[in-house]
Write a protein that binds this DNA or RNA. Structure first.
Length: 490
RNA sequence: CGGGGCGUAGCACAGCCUGGUAGUGCGCACGGUUUGGGACCGUGAGGCCGCAAGUUCGAAUCUUGCCGCCCCGACCA
């Protein structure tokens, strides 16, 4: 393993890839576009899962599990949905292999061809709504508030670790409601929940908004999203919440009897966040020394590194550390004492910085004698010496400070990289430089398309919270009622 | 699917032009000296040189075909 990482300023995507690999988060698998999520990376994902799952449960949702395979006939039913996903589906056509008579190895057994192909789910609306058909008869059966944690496959042409992989892990919520307002309320509630998670757990500020019709989820009536700004000035869609109207209820014939004894189609929502959030987390905070993790999602919040010359010294240091470890654990802080003897302290310092451990405690004989300990902050790379006596409190306070500080830093970055522009020259120039570009848009798909073709910028969202402000479309000069967020996106 | 790059030890690479049977660094094992920001010395283990065919006395090296991966675009969460 070499020493330094590539610099963000020199080669951002190489920096990103190297951080993912060298911090032990994930690696490429033998299958194109798929990744192995390694223990340290998966530990972060598990923390995200836990927090999100608690939030789902707290808002009345239950977990369930639906099959990996989608019959082709299901996927066909909703026309827009089918069209949106058709190009990126992995398809199972056979159920058996046999020994290859012409040589060694195995071949697909032509006699084992499936009657109907099975699609490996790119998303589960169809399978789930097919099930809901049998679950819903009366308004009393509603709402159904279900989430599932699963893997899905989308055969993307170009993949990047975490940000876009052919197979990814996610959660997908699928709810059914008796009324349109209730379904819309659910869609918005989940969007708020995602924003809450992004900001308070990931320390990543997001803009909540609506997608334009052309950026909508295939089959949705309305798509809400949270959009984050990465350090290279590109936007990342971090989560989506869809109001599906009655589209899926109609094609899967999911009807219920309302209080007035009339048959009605159920109203649907679906929403999801994926392991892409790992990519967002990495790009939101990390620096040229490696990962910077928010304390709330860090698998190891505090690492303790002993600095010693002899075995006897280590024994004495360990004695002191033992108490600190116990106290930290009692305070609910995850801590690792790294007394391994195969690396020296300097190596460990660099290693844990690479892994983004929020706080490092360094302790040597000098400290043991003086009753002090060195506290190093990952986000600021600052070090101070404090009395061992109050170290638990110091750590506790500092973890909270780091959580806040990296959020504030990311927020400041976003603010400094959000620009209002009012003419085409400024628009193209700013898109080229990066950042969120707030500009007027005439509301037509045609203009949106032309802007995309000329600048590669897309409308990330129409912000939910924004002042009405009359203006002229930056491209067509036509009237516009409010600014929308443009950016180049991942 | 277009454009570029690359497949040689666990990792990063050199060797290929000009064919002679594989090397450097990191890592790993053991021993020793070290230890407050990525230590050093010694010894050692580790290879079907992506796969297949061809040329040749002889192929990592030349030829042909295949396979795979990475990066940049188009597409997408």
């Amino acid at each position: 393993m070499g020493k330094g990482l590539p610099k963000r300023s020199e080669n951002y995507s190489e920096w990103y890839n190297e951080i993912v690999k060298r911090a032990g988060l994930a690696e490429n698998s033998p299958v194109r576009g798929c990744m192995v999520i390694k223990p340290y990376g998966f530990a972060i994902w598990e923390k995200m899962q836990r927090a999100l799952d608690d939030m789902f449960k707290a808002t009345g949702h239950e977990n369930a599990y639906f099959p990996l395979f989608v019959p082709r006939s299901f996927l066909e039913k909703e026309e827009e949905h089918a069209e949106g996903f058709a190009k990126e589906c992995a398809v199972v056509t056979h159920y058996r292999l046999k020994a290859d008579p012409d040589g060694k190895g195995l071949m697909v057994d032509p006699n084992a061809k499936l009657e109907e192909e099975l699609i490996i789910r790119p998303t589960s609306e169809t399978v789930i709504w097919n099930a809901y058909k049998n679950w819903i008869q009366s308004w009393r059966d509603l709402p159904i508030l279900i989430n599932q944690w699963a893997n899905v496959v989308r055969w993307e042409m170009r993949t990047r670790l975490f940000l876009r992989t052919a197979e990814f892990l996610w959660q997908e919520g699928h709810t059914a409601h008796a009324t349109e307002p209730e379904a819309i309320e659910e869609t918005e509630k989940i969007l708020g929940l995602y924003a809450d998670f992004a900001e308070n757990w990931m320390a990543m500020p997001v803009i909540q908004g609506l997608k334009t019709p052309s950026e909508r989820f295939a089959g949705a009536v309305e798509t809400y999203c949270i959009e984050a700004l990465m350090q290279d000035g590109r936007a990342l869609q971090a989560g989506t919440s869809h109001f599906l109207g009655q589209n899926f209820a109609k094609v899967f014939d999911v009807k219920f009897v309302n209080k007035e004894n009339q048959l009605e189609y159920a109203w649907a929502t679906s929403w999801g966040v994926s392991t892409r959030l790992m990519g967002a987390l990495i790009m939101a905070h990390s620096d040229d020394n490696g990962l910077v993790l928010p304390p709330k999602l860090a698998p190891i919040q505090v690492v303790i590194v002993p600095i010693y010359k002899s075995e006897e010294d280590l024994a004495k240091i360990s004695e002191t550390v033992e108490g600190i470890v116990a106290d930290l654990r009692n305070a609910g802080i995850s801590v690792k004492y790294d007394d391994s003897d195969n690396q020296r302290s300097g190596w460990k310092f660099a290693e844990y910085e690479l892994k983004g451990v929020p706080i490092r405690l360094g302790i040597g004989m000098r400290d043991v004698e003086n009753g002090t300990i060195e506290v190093a902050r990952r986000d600021t790379l600052t070090k101070t010496s404090v009395p061992i006596e109050g170290v638990i409190e110091t750590v506790n306070v500092m973890l909270e400070q780091i959580q806040q500080a990296i959020y504030q830093k990311a927020l400041r970055f976003r603010e400094e990289n959000t620009f209002s522009v009012d003419n085409w020259d400024d628009f193209t120039r700013q898109i080229e430089k990066g950042g969120f570009v707030m500009a007027h848009w005439d509301g037509t798909a045609d203009t949106e398309e032309k802007i995309k073709n000329e600048t590669k910028a897309t409308i990330r969202c129409i912000p939910l919270v924004s002042a009405d402000e009359a203006g002229k479309c930056v491209f067509s000069g036509k009237d516009s009622a409010r600014r929308v967020v443009f950016a180049r996106a991942y």
